[in-house]
Design a protein around this nucleic acid. Sequence first.
DNA 1: CGTACCTTTGACTCGTGTCAACAATGGTGG
DNA 2: CCACCATTGTTGACACGAGTCAAAGGTACG
Lengths: 254, 254
Amino acid sequence: MSDTNATCAKPVQRCHHNPLVSCGDCRLNAICLPISLHVEDIDKLDQIIQRGRPLQKGEYLYRSNDQFTSVFAVRSGTIKAVNITNDGEEQVTGFYLPGEILGMDGIAQNHYTNSAIALETSAICEIPFSRLEELSLRLPSLQRHFFQLMSKEITADQQLITLLSKNSADERIAALLLSISARNQNRHLSATSFRLPMSRSDIGNYLGLTIETVSRVFSRFQKKELLAVDKKEINILDMDGLKNVAQAQPASRS
Amino acid sequence: MSDTNATCAKPVQRCHHNPLVSCGDCRLNAICLPISLHVEDIDKLDQIIQRGRPLQKGEYLYRSNDQFTSVFAVRSGTIKAVNITNDGEEQVTGFYLPGEILGMDGIAQNHYTNSAIALETSAICEIPFSRLEELSLRLPSLQRHFFQLMSKEITADQQLITLLSKNSADERIAALLLSISARNQNRHLSATSFRLPMSRSDIGNYLGLTIETVSRVFSRFQKKELLAVDKKEINILDMDGLKNVAQAQPASRS
DNA sequence: CGTACCTTTGACTCGTGTCAACAATGGTGG
DNA sequence: CCACCATTGTTGACACGAGTCAAAGGTACG
């Protein structure tokens, strides 16, 4: 809970849980807005962003088939995106950590194709898309930033496709742990010691594995002294070893 | 080869193999540009599009790590997009048929993360991205169209993720055949009788299966009289039966 | 403090991969 | 035009990784 529920201490206006903090002051803006906007342009963007009350664990940010209105930036907490299959099952297609943006699947069809659910208490910035579109017409670097964000989502999805298609259970889980580790590092948190915000079931669903397999892999990794696992608390003991497991691609296959 | 190598007969200016045909006259523009642009705006778009000589089977449209310059519309033929994994293996992440657009993975990092390879002789429209960006700033509906195109790529990738994660070999192949069938129908071709542009190996790679499994599934489908298969020529004999196979999700999982 | 949910572990099964042999196809050069 | 060879596709026998089923802790929450 360290990051998520920490109370905001002194520099109140820079705390990322505070709904009043503006983009210019947000400590995540290097991730969320890594672009050279003038101060006055950031203000314009700031004005269209809505900051509601935090979502509680299990609450929906939006549901599949809802009218598409906005994209969302995670300010704190974690959101999972899930596809609903024909027969009503869930497929987790992504986890979104602070500074990351979701909801872009809704643009094409004017309704969301995913549902988005909070995995823990999460503060969210809502960005109404029509106003973002207007603003993008006037700010070339914002338009570009948005194209880049969507492109990034595409490459992330394609990475996952490759992972699912080519890699074993061990490799998939190692890759997920390394991805979370790297994203934590980006946010200046520990790369080796962190709390998984999602359940074993979410991990299994995301990686195309059953919870039993996920559990067994964690046990195996502990036996090999790659990790120390205490419930959701993860400690990477042997980063290089873990990278070895993740990169070990199967020998052949088409 | 019917669609691909047919010689262009009478209305030469409307034939989609002709490199001189403009967007306004292209028979694919309902797929590629399903937007309400004024005639003069289509002309502006037309002016930035480059139409080179056709690619031959096996030729690269672009390679992973090439400098990102353009996105590409398929005018005729078929392109596959492949990710190269750490150890040099290929992962097919998509097949692009006439009217479809590829290359958007390159925007985020300014170089392509995929390679794109022609599966047969293919004519391509190249759209320089920087000029498309400029034009998008002046044409709101073009900006929106592009956001939608990228969003469509995202939802397609997430569909594939779900397929790989949750579905059996039979279900995956049924889904691919139905997808190609529907896209053919969109282009006013037969939904039940068509030629697969890709090899068994490409199919297996795309769907996370070995070529042996792909071959066996085709045999099984023929035995069940869902399909008639003659090499790459496919005849869907029982469309409803095939849809049944595709939608039959596994009972539980997660 | 009890109940519901999540996680772990074991025993067994099954689908798909692997390995191997062979058939069919298509392109090339004599 | 045909023979040759490389490539691609088909089929069978077997193996193995991950799924399924089941049971027993652990943990969280009311």
